[in-house]
Design a protein around this nucleic acid. Sequence first.
DNA 1: CCATATTGAATGAATGTTCAACAAATGGTC
DNA 2: GACCATTTGTTGAACATTCATTCAATATGG
Lengths: 228, 228
Amino acid sequence: MWSMTAPMKAAAREERSSDTSGKTEPEKRGRKASKEVRQQQLIEATIDSLAKRGYAETTMADVADGAGLSRGIVNFHFESKEKLLIATLQYMYDEYSAHWRAALQKAGDDPARQLQVLVWADFDRSICNKRKLAAWLAFWGEAKSRPVYQALSSSRDAYYQQVFIDLCATLKESGGYAYEPQVMALALSAMLEGLWLRLMMGTEDTTRETALQAANAFLAAAFPKHYG
Amino acid sequence: MWSMTAPMKAAAREERSSDTSGKTEPEKRGRKASKEVRQQQLIEATIDSLAKRGYAETTMADVADGAGLSRGIVNFHFESKEKLLIATLQYMYDEYSAHWRAALQKAGDDPARQLQVLVWADFDRSICNKRKLAAWLAFWGEAKSRPVYQALSSSRDAYYQQVFIDLCATLKESGGYAYEPQVMALALSAMLEGLWLRLMMGTEDTTRETALQAANAFLAAAFPKHYG
DNA sequence: CCATATTGAATGAATGTTCAACAAATGGTC
DNA sequence: GACCATTTGTTGAACATTCATTCAATATGG
């Protein structure tokens, strides 16, 4: 439903876990905002709640409170709690998707640079912040037992993976490497997800900077001719 | 509480998601089993439920049913639902911990072989199966919002990470590599967790075999003198 | 004034916890 | 070994709470 509808506007907002709700926004807030504005507001409040309380403890009341609205409002805009959560997941999926596609677009034609840019995109502040990562992880935890989530829950989808494979294949040819592109692409994308996981868990020893360092070390090791 | 108490017995059982409960076990089952047996039985039923229904939908009734016992029994052996879940997480943590330590013990003195063995241990059937992985992910999804889980939820703890760093440092010296041991250790362990994640999600393109292939490709790229 | 949005109390279902009754094991005594 | 008392384990119904959902009343904007 909300596929690709202005996801970057929200992305540019970065972390907003400190300000408790959308109240401070310049949008008309008190009552009678447009449908789209209210829905996005509620989705953002849902992400807040997922990040703060986890999936299991996220309640409709908490979402409504977080948005500064009344209890029944969520069932009006979204039919049920389940649909709200699906819409939220779709929203994050679209945002992530649009982000790496835009980055790739601007990267130019050099495949080595394209791969580098994709890695950077993963650790961009607009995507890779505690709030969003926590929300992703909350969904992942429920994905296997909910078929509806499964398709959307891996932010890196089949197409993303294919782009990785193609880039690895191109680099292999131009650099004369020995690996299988498919295998190396899996190793690389798995490492990116693993670094996300570390950041989500919030262990002190992993920051966005050290994660990026690790990713670069991997690139240098796997493609020494290109990133030496 | 259950730290290190015979975790391998359960590990050897492998996947048991098909047989619905512990009923078929030769242990005395009908009534009045020993405290430890009942607790382990309930923990296994909890893992089943987490894997099948996810964290949010796991109920005390489902756990009791899964173990073939009555409703009130869980509150007798564990004081509350929260304590049952913590005990379950502790149980899995201990099992994982004991598994890689035992593998490392048997690996001999060659650091290259030790690292290889640690990677293999991660994809051993007793540890790396759908049931256990799903349960891990269920806990991870709740970890950031629950301080109690945080320490136990990263199966790979600080000590594990230090072992990785030390091995990377040793290999760097003997192979004359350029990377920073700490950074490469992070990249490697992140990739392992990322591969787990892929396996948990159950996407068709990643199996235990392809995951192991990817891990080996990483080792070969990062330590060409040792795994060429 | 009509369509649309919003409120907040009422409702009912789901679920964790408690507990009194009951059953099985244990151990001591004859 | 038989008997009984005590401890320990188990059951299932009752209870209290939390929460998603519904909806009649109300407010808003066009």
